[in-house]
Design a protein around this nucleic acid. Structure first.
Length: 266
DNA sequence: AAGGGCCACAACCGCCAAACA
DNA sequence: ATGTTTGGCGGTTGTGGCCCT
Protein backbone atom coordinates (compact mmCIF):
# COMPACT_ATOMS: atom_id res chain seq x y z
CA UNK A 1 0.00 0.00 0.00
CA UNK A 2 1.42 3.30 -1.03
CA UNK A 3 1.53 6.49 0.92
CA UNK A 4 -1.72 8.40 0.80
CA UNK A 5 -1.52 11.92 -0.62
CA UNK A 6 -1.87 14.73 1.87
CA UNK A 7 -4.77 16.23 -0.05
CA UNK A 8 -6.89 15.85 -3.14
CA UNK A 9 -4.73 17.50 -5.77
CA UNK A 10 -7.66 17.89 -8.13
CA UNK A 11 -9.65 19.84 -5.57
CA UNK A 12 -7.01 22.29 -4.42
CA UNK A 13 -5.64 25.37 -6.06
CA UNK A 14 -1.95 25.47 -6.82
CA UNK A 15 0.54 28.06 -7.92
CA UNK A 16 1.04 31.63 -6.74
CA UNK A 17 -1.13 32.92 -3.95
CA UNK A 18 -3.56 35.75 -4.59
CA UNK A 19 -3.95 38.75 -2.30
CA UNK A 20 -7.33 37.45 -1.20
CA UNK A 21 -5.89 34.09 -0.23
CA UNK A 22 -3.11 35.79 1.67
CA UNK A 23 -5.66 37.91 3.48
CA UNK A 24 -7.75 34.87 4.43
CA UNK A 25 -4.75 32.99 5.72
CA UNK A 26 -3.39 35.98 7.58
CA UNK A 27 -6.75 36.69 9.14
CA UNK A 28 -7.13 33.08 10.22
CA UNK A 29 -3.66 32.91 11.72
CA UNK A 30 -4.13 36.19 13.56
CA UNK A 31 -7.40 34.94 15.02
CA UNK A 32 -5.61 31.85 16.29
CA UNK A 33 -2.53 33.54 17.64
CA UNK A 34 -0.21 32.58 14.82
CA UNK A 35 -0.72 28.87 15.09
CA UNK A 36 -2.87 26.37 13.26
CA UNK A 37 -5.89 25.60 15.42
CA UNK A 38 -6.88 22.27 16.92
CA UNK A 39 -7.32 20.53 13.60
CA UNK A 40 -3.77 21.37 12.59
CA UNK A 41 -2.53 22.49 9.22
CA UNK A 42 -4.51 19.83 7.38
CA UNK A 43 -7.79 21.22 8.66
CA UNK A 44 -6.79 24.84 8.25
CA UNK A 45 -7.81 25.31 4.60
CA UNK A 46 -11.36 24.18 5.33
CA UNK A 47 -11.62 26.31 8.47
CA UNK A 48 -10.11 29.33 6.77
CA UNK A 49 -12.11 28.96 3.59
CA UNK A 50 -9.11 28.29 1.38
CA UNK A 51 -8.93 25.87 -1.51
CA UNK A 52 -5.34 25.05 -0.74
CA UNK A 53 -3.40 22.09 0.56
CA UNK A 54 -2.63 22.39 4.27
CA UNK A 55 1.05 22.04 3.57
CA UNK A 56 0.85 24.86 1.08
CA UNK A 57 -0.83 27.06 3.71
CA UNK A 58 1.86 26.23 6.21
CA UNK A 59 4.60 27.06 3.75
CA UNK A 60 2.97 30.30 2.70
CA UNK A 61 2.58 31.39 6.30
CA UNK A 62 6.01 30.39 7.54
CA UNK A 63 7.97 31.62 4.55
CA UNK A 64 6.09 34.72 3.56
CA UNK A 65 3.20 35.96 5.65
CA UNK A 66 4.43 35.31 9.16
CA UNK A 67 5.26 38.53 11.04
CA UNK A 68 8.96 39.19 11.25
CA UNK A 69 9.89 37.41 8.05
CA UNK A 70 12.41 39.54 6.21
CA UNK A 71 12.41 39.91 2.45
CA UNK A 72 15.23 42.39 2.11
CA UNK A 73 18.66 41.52 0.82
CA UNK A 74 21.19 39.52 2.79
CA UNK A 75 23.95 41.45 4.47
CA UNK A 76 27.65 40.55 4.14
CA UNK A 77 27.56 39.40 7.74
CA UNK A 78 24.69 37.08 6.95
CA UNK A 79 26.63 35.85 3.91
CA UNK A 80 29.55 34.96 6.09
CA UNK A 81 27.41 33.23 8.65
CA UNK A 82 25.60 31.18 6.03
CA UNK A 83 28.89 30.13 4.43
CA UNK A 84 30.36 29.20 7.75
CA UNK A 85 27.34 27.27 8.92
CA UNK A 86 26.96 25.51 5.60
CA UNK A 87 30.57 24.44 5.72
CA UNK A 88 30.09 23.26 9.26
CA UNK A 89 26.78 21.46 9.15
CA UNK A 90 25.91 21.13 5.49
CA UNK A 91 22.47 21.71 4.02
CA UNK A 92 20.70 21.94 7.34
CA UNK A 93 18.75 24.97 6.24
CA UNK A 94 16.40 25.10 9.16
CA UNK A 95 19.34 25.10 11.57
CA UNK A 96 21.15 27.72 9.54
CA UNK A 97 18.07 29.90 9.33
CA UNK A 98 17.65 29.63 13.08
CA UNK A 99 20.81 31.70 13.41
CA UNK A 100 19.54 34.39 11.07
CA UNK A 101 16.71 36.37 12.64
CA UNK A 102 13.86 36.97 10.24
CA UNK A 103 15.15 34.52 7.68
CA UNK A 104 13.44 31.31 6.70
CA UNK A 105 14.98 28.01 5.74
CA UNK A 106 13.48 28.34 2.30
CA UNK A 107 14.86 31.83 1.90
CA UNK A 108 18.34 30.88 3.01
CA UNK A 109 18.29 27.80 0.83
CA UNK A 110 17.21 29.78 -2.23
CA UNK A 111 19.77 32.45 -1.54
CA UNK A 112 22.51 29.89 -1.21
CA UNK A 113 21.56 27.97 -4.32
CA UNK A 114 21.06 30.97 -6.55
CA UNK A 115 23.65 33.42 -5.40
CA UNK A 116 25.86 32.71 -2.44
CA UNK A 117 27.25 29.42 -3.69
CA UNK A 118 28.30 31.10 -6.91
CA UNK A 119 29.85 33.98 -5.04
CA UNK A 120 31.82 31.57 -2.91
CA UNK A 121 32.98 29.52 -5.85
CA UNK A 122 34.07 32.65 -7.68
CA UNK A 123 35.94 33.72 -4.61
CA UNK A 124 37.68 30.40 -4.25
CA UNK A 125 38.60 30.47 -7.90
CA UNK A 126 40.33 33.76 -7.31
CA UNK A 127 37.87 35.86 -9.21
CA UNK A 128 36.87 39.30 -8.01
CA UNK A 129 34.25 39.17 -5.35
CA UNK A 130 33.21 41.90 -3.04
CA UNK A 131 31.24 40.42 -0.18
CA UNK A 132 31.27 43.62 1.75
CA UNK A 133 34.57 44.31 3.32
CA UNK A 134 36.21 41.09 4.38
CA UNK A 135 36.17 41.66 8.08
CA UNK A 136 38.83 39.91 10.04
CA UNK A 137 37.43 38.83 13.34
CA UNK A 138 40.56 37.81 15.11
CA UNK A 139 43.90 39.44 15.06
CA UNK A 140 46.05 36.36 14.94
CA UNK A 141 49.40 36.75 16.53
CA UNK A 142 51.24 34.57 14.08
CA UNK A 143 52.78 36.70 11.37
CA UNK A 144 52.88 33.66 9.12
CA UNK A 145 49.14 33.34 9.11
CA UNK A 146 47.49 33.70 5.72
CA UNK A 147 44.85 36.42 5.31
CA UNK A 148 41.42 35.50 6.51
CA UNK A 149 38.97 34.61 3.83
CA UNK A 150 36.18 37.18 3.53
CA UNK A 151 33.58 34.72 4.66
CA UNK A 152 35.51 33.90 7.77
CA UNK A 153 33.54 34.62 10.88
CA UNK A 154 33.18 33.69 14.45
CA UNK A 155 30.62 31.01 14.83
CA UNK A 156 29.05 30.61 18.22
CA UNK A 157 26.82 27.71 17.44
CA UNK A 158 25.17 26.33 20.51
CA UNK A 159 23.20 23.19 20.17
CA UNK A 160 22.72 19.68 21.36
CA UNK A 161 24.32 16.54 20.11
CA UNK A 162 22.37 13.38 19.56
CA UNK A 163 22.75 12.58 23.21
CA UNK A 164 21.11 15.80 24.24
CA UNK A 165 24.35 17.25 25.59
CA UNK A 166 24.84 20.94 25.11
CA UNK A 167 27.76 21.73 22.91
CA UNK A 168 29.24 24.86 21.61
CA UNK A 169 30.19 24.01 18.09
CA UNK A 170 32.72 25.83 16.02
CA UNK A 171 33.47 25.34 12.41
CA UNK A 172 36.51 25.28 10.28
CA UNK A 173 35.77 25.93 6.65
CA UNK A 174 37.93 23.37 5.00
CA UNK A 175 38.10 23.78 1.28
CA UNK A 176 41.19 23.15 -0.71
CA UNK A 177 43.67 20.35 -0.54
CA UNK A 178 46.00 21.84 1.97
CA UNK A 179 47.93 23.76 -0.61
CA UNK A 180 46.89 26.18 -3.30
CA UNK A 181 44.27 24.05 -4.95
CA UNK A 182 41.39 25.80 -3.29
CA UNK A 183 38.77 24.16 -5.40
CA UNK A 184 38.36 20.95 -7.26
CA UNK A 185 38.72 17.25 -6.80
CA UNK A 186 41.06 17.58 -3.88
CA UNK A 187 38.56 19.57 -1.87
CA UNK A 188 39.25 18.14 1.48
CA UNK A 189 36.87 18.63 4.31
CA UNK A 190 34.84 20.81 6.51
CA UNK A 191 35.68 20.07 10.08
CA UNK A 192 33.55 20.69 13.08
CA UNK A 193 34.87 20.30 16.54
CA UNK A 194 32.80 20.64 19.61
CA UNK A 195 33.09 20.64 23.29
CA UNK A 196 30.69 20.36 26.18
CA UNK A 197 29.46 23.79 27.14
CA UNK A 198 30.91 23.34 30.58
CA UNK A 199 34.06 21.60 29.44
CA UNK A 200 37.27 22.63 27.86
CA UNK A 201 39.09 21.80 24.72
CA UNK A 202 41.84 19.34 24.75
CA UNK A 203 45.10 20.44 23.28
CA UNK A 204 44.70 17.52 20.92
CA UNK A 205 42.06 17.97 18.19
CA UNK A 206 41.39 14.28 17.85
CA UNK A 207 40.27 14.10 21.43
CA UNK A 208 36.86 14.71 19.89
CA UNK A 209 37.27 11.71 17.63
CA UNK A 210 33.89 10.19 18.35
CA UNK A 211 32.04 13.39 17.68
CA UNK A 212 34.00 14.01 14.51
CA UNK A 213 33.23 10.52 13.34
CA UNK A 214 29.56 11.20 13.75
CA UNK A 215 29.71 14.58 12.09
CA UNK A 216 31.65 13.29 9.13
CA UNK A 217 29.24 10.46 8.67
CA UNK A 218 26.31 12.84 8.60
CA UNK A 219 28.11 15.25 6.33
CA UNK A 220 29.00 12.46 3.97
CA UNK A 221 25.34 12.15 3.05
CA UNK A 222 24.86 15.69 1.83
CA UNK A 223 25.31 14.77 -1.79
CA UNK A 224 27.36 17.87 -2.29
CA UNK A 225 29.67 17.16 -5.17
CA UNK A 226 32.03 19.87 -4.08
CA UNK A 227 32.86 17.75 -1.11
CA UNK A 228 33.00 14.54 -3.03
CA UNK A 229 35.58 12.98 -0.82
CA UNK A 230 33.11 13.21 2.01
CA UNK A 231 30.72 11.00 0.13
CA UNK A 232 31.84 8.00 2.09
CA UNK A 233 31.91 7.69 5.83
CA UNK A 234 35.36 8.24 7.09
CA UNK A 235 37.02 7.87 10.39
CA UNK A 236 38.27 10.97 12.07
CA UNK A 237 41.59 9.23 12.27
CA UNK A 238 41.86 9.86 8.53
CA UNK A 239 41.75 13.61 9.02
CA UNK A 240 45.04 15.18 8.19
CA UNK A 241 45.64 17.08 11.37
CA UNK A 242 48.74 18.68 9.93
CA UNK A 243 46.35 21.21 8.46
CA UNK A 244 45.46 22.50 11.82
CA UNK A 245 47.10 23.65 14.93
CA UNK A 246 45.69 24.74 18.21
CA UNK A 247 46.84 27.93 19.73
CA UNK A 248 45.54 30.41 22.24
CA UNK A 249 44.29 33.86 21.44
CA UNK A 250 43.02 36.12 24.16
CA UNK A 251 42.25 33.11 26.25
CA UNK A 252 40.18 31.53 23.49
CA UNK A 253 41.06 28.31 21.80
CA UNK A 254 41.98 28.81 18.21
CA UNK A 255 42.17 25.98 15.77
CA UNK A 256 44.12 27.49 12.97
CA UNK A 257 45.04 26.02 9.66
CA UNK A 258 48.52 26.74 8.56
CA UNK A 259 48.79 25.45 5.04
CA UNK A 260 46.52 27.78 3.12
CA UNK A 261 43.16 26.33 4.00
CA UNK A 262 40.48 28.81 4.99
CA UNK A 263 39.46 28.60 8.58
CA UNK A 264 37.37 30.00 11.34
CA UNK A 265 38.28 31.10 14.77
CA UNK A 266 36.56 31.00 18.05
C1' DA B 1 11.01 46.10 -30.62
C1' DA B 2 11.27 41.17 -30.22
C1' DG B 3 12.70 37.06 -28.34
C1' DG B 4 15.85 34.03 -26.20
C1' DG B 5 18.55 33.13 -22.13
C1' DC B 6 19.43 33.80 -17.46
C1' DC B 7 18.38 34.74 -12.74
C1' DA B 8 15.85 35.00 -8.48
C1' DC B 9 12.29 33.56 -5.86
C1' DA B 10 8.00 31.25 -4.60
C1' DA B 11 5.94 27.04 -4.47
C1' DC B 12 5.66 22.10 -4.91
C1' DC B 13 7.17 17.26 -4.17
C1' DG B 14 8.41 13.48 -1.65
C1' DC B 15 10.80 11.53 2.20
C1' DC B 16 11.26 11.00 7.08
C1' DA B 17 10.37 11.03 11.89
C1' DA B 18 7.46 12.23 15.68
C1' DA B 19 2.94 12.08 17.43
C1' DC B 20 -1.11 9.84 17.92
C1' DA B 21 -4.75 6.28 17.88
C1' DA C 1 3.65 -2.71 19.68
C1' DT C 2 2.00 -1.31 15.39
C1' DG C 3 -0.17 1.30 11.78
C1' DT C 4 -1.62 5.88 10.37
C1' DT C 5 -1.47 10.76 10.25
C1' DT C 6 0.76 15.01 10.40
C1' DG C 7 4.38 18.35 10.43
C1' DG C 8 9.02 19.44 9.12
C1' DC C 9 12.64 19.43 6.04
C1' DG C 10 15.64 19.50 1.89
C1' DG C 11 15.68 19.08 -3.06
C1' DT C 12 13.68 20.48 -7.17
C1' DT C 13 10.68 22.81 -10.40
C1' DG C 14 7.87 26.58 -12.36
C1' DT C 15 7.41 31.21 -13.49
C1' DG C 16 7.91 36.08 -13.94
C1' DG C 17 11.06 39.68 -14.77
C1' DC C 18 15.31 41.47 -16.42
C1' DC C 19 19.06 41.77 -19.61
C1' DC C 20 21.43 41.13 -23.76
C1' DT C 21 21.67 40.51 -28.61
Amino acid sequence: MGRSPCCDKAAVKRGPWSEEEDARLRSYMERHGGAAAGGGWMALPREAGLRRCGKSCRLRWLNYLRPGVRHDGFSPEEDRLICALHAAIGSRWSLIAAHLPGRTDNGVKNYWNTRLKKKLMALLAGKPYNAGGGRNNVNVSSAASPPLAPWTTTLPYTGCDSGGVDHQMRAVVGVGGGSDDMIGASTKAAVVVSRPANGSYSSEPLAAATELDEIFRSMGNTGDGERSDLSQPQSSTEIDTSWYQYCQHDGESVLQQHMGVPYLYW
